[in-house]
Each structure stands twice: as C-alpha cells, then as structure tokens.
Amino acid sequence: MRTPHRPPVIDMRGVGKVFVAGALELPVLTDIHLTVHEGEFVAIAGPSGCGKTTLLSLMGLLDTPTHGHMRFLGEPVVAAGRRQRALLRNAHVGFVFQAFNLVADMSVAANVALPLAFRKGIGRRERDERVAAALASVGMSHRMRHFPGQLSGGQQQRVAVARAIVGEPAVILADEPTGNLDLENGERVMALLGRLNAAGTTLCMVTHDDRFSAAADRIVRLLDGRVVDEATFQERQREAGSGLDERRAMEALL
C-alpha cells in the first residue's frame, strides 16, 4: 500500500445504513469499518445489490448513516447538518458518475464550472481559469462551448472528470465511471483518474471490473452489506493462486 501512514480522509467506524419504506426496514450496510487515507486509491467491489453505491454515497456525504461513527477530514459528520455536509462536499469532494450526469442545456464549460458556481469567494476570472485548466487536463478544451448532447460517451465522462477536479477536491468518488463506456474510452478515463491519484488526489471507485480495480492500492469487497475482504490486488491474486499481473498491466496504461 502506498499511503498507510498518511492522515485519514474518510474514517468509518461501525457504520450502518437501513432504508425504511413504511413498515419495512431494509438494512443495506452493516457494521462498516473503513478508513481511506490521503492519496490512497481504494476500489470498492462486490456483486450487485451488496451496498457499493450506498457506501459511496455515505463516503461522499450524499447520505447519512443510520448508525455508527464517521469522520471526514477529521471532522465528525454523522450529526452534521445538511448545510454543513453541502459545504464539505463542495470544498473537498469530486464526483464521477456512471451516467455522467451532465446538465444537458448547459455548455461543457458551464457544466465544469458548476461546483465553483456553488462556492463563495471565487470570482469569474478565477473560475474561468480553473475551468480552462480542468478541461485542458482532460483534453477537452476544444469542446468547451459544446453541449453534452454533442459529445460522445467517453468525451462526456472526461468532462465529468474535469468537473470533479475543478474544485481541487481532497477526494474523488467515482461510481462505475467506466460502466457506460467501451473498453477504449474506459481505459482513457481510468488513465485520467490514475494520473490524478498519482498526483496525490485520494480516489475511491466503485467498479465491477477487475482490470480497473487492479490499479487500486486496496480493494474493499462487500457482500450483503458487510466488508468481507480488504486486500491489495496482489494479495488477492496470491490467495487466488493466479499468475496474472494485472497491476503491472494497469501501470503500463498510466
């Protein structure tokens, strides 16, 4: 692991989440203990319905745990109010979604600028400079005046990555970022995320694809709402007795 001694960005202790629908209670996550350190790349894997997306939404402060303790950048957040969590998300979290979630009637530049539009103290000039830099870093500067409907899926996801990094967040949370992309575009997006992680940005990614989770420092495997395994890719490969070195293959991509 690359960052065992760095300070934790996300620290979850005994976290659980129960969805309630009328009289029906559905526990989705149970007793999660998970710490993500600064600069770490954590992949979250597991079968469908195991709670990966719910875990990601708790880590990204999109939702609140039903029980347990959680700190974000050292700050307790379980009892944090809606406003405080919004401020934390805006300042420290970047999101990349499977379906891109670009606003269709806003230009590429306006989409990328969206997190900055919700942040106080950033002038128009600074915002434009940051947007231009973010788009340049994902190779989309030439499409900044276009609208999402005019871009391919891979291009839309690169714009989404630019939106995720424009606010210089401490952590990027990616929910199946390659799920809607073909292999080539998926690899390009993973290369982008890998570069960001290499530059020091913490990365948590939900994925089904072992080829991409191989690049992670750690793979957290969920089953029925519980963490059942937490290991590096090599450790898992050794346990599995496999001779493939996909980690090396991914590093070649980066």
Binding site: F95, L114, F118
Partner: peptide, 25 residues
C-alpha cells in the same frame, strides 16, 4: 429533478438549488 440532485451533490445551498432548479430557464 436529476439536475437538482446533481447540484445538491455538488454542494449547492438551498437557495442555490432554488435558483438553479426553478428560477433558471
């Protein structure tokens, strides 16, 4: 609705959500 959820996820305040979701357009 989806754009609003996105704006909320990106840290928009309630007033910013109103501006973004209702008054815009």
């Amino acid at each position: 609705q989806r754009d609003l959820a996105l704006a909320a996820a990106l840290g928009a305040s309630p007033w910013q959500l109103c501006t973004f979701g209702v008054l815009r357009g």
